[in-house]
Amino acid sequence: MNNHSDNKAPVKKMLLILSKATLENVYAAFVLANGARMEGIESEIFFTFFGLEAINKKRMKNLHVATVGNPAMHIPTMVGGLPGMEALATTMMKKEMDKLDIPEIEEFLYILSASGVKLWACKLAMDMFHLEKEELFDELDGVLTVGDFYGRAEGDGTHLLFI
């Protein structure tokens, strides 16, 4: 909608914090960040804790759907923990996503970057996991502290989302 009246505050910037590396959470963050750009809204993703896996060049190709402790999978937890269940669920999910024209993690990161989504790695989490910048996605915009990240939230119409 283009007709914003004075008392409506349009969303101008989305700051997403990705703290998990299960496929469903990574895609949620990516689709939301990309969707914001498609609406002309600025967007940035801060990868912290396990979220760093999604920009880890060695790990990003092996992310899985969580089959244990996820009631929405409709698989009993004991069965979800059997060998191969995660891989099976992941293959099924990837097939469905491909039908919907949703790219794999690495390609999606390139799309996000080309679309102007700023991608940041969390300094503390990098130190914790002993990760170097060279091990992360090449188009990363930089490494930030939490304080730096909050600094980017300045201005009206900024929203933060923790995933």
């Binding site: 990309n34 498609m38 609406e39 002309g40 024209d101 799309i111 080309a114 679309s115």
Partner: peptide, 27 residues
């Protein structure tokens, strides 16, 4: 249409698509 398909079309790169129509390229 999707951003991904347009980026792959060879007609316009995603970066340029955003430069040409900054307020929401596809829309």
């Amino acid at each position: 249409l999707s951003i991904r398909k347009i980026g792959k079309s060879g007609v316009v790169a995603i970066k340029d698509f955003y430069r040409l129509f900054p307020k929401g390229p596809l829309k």
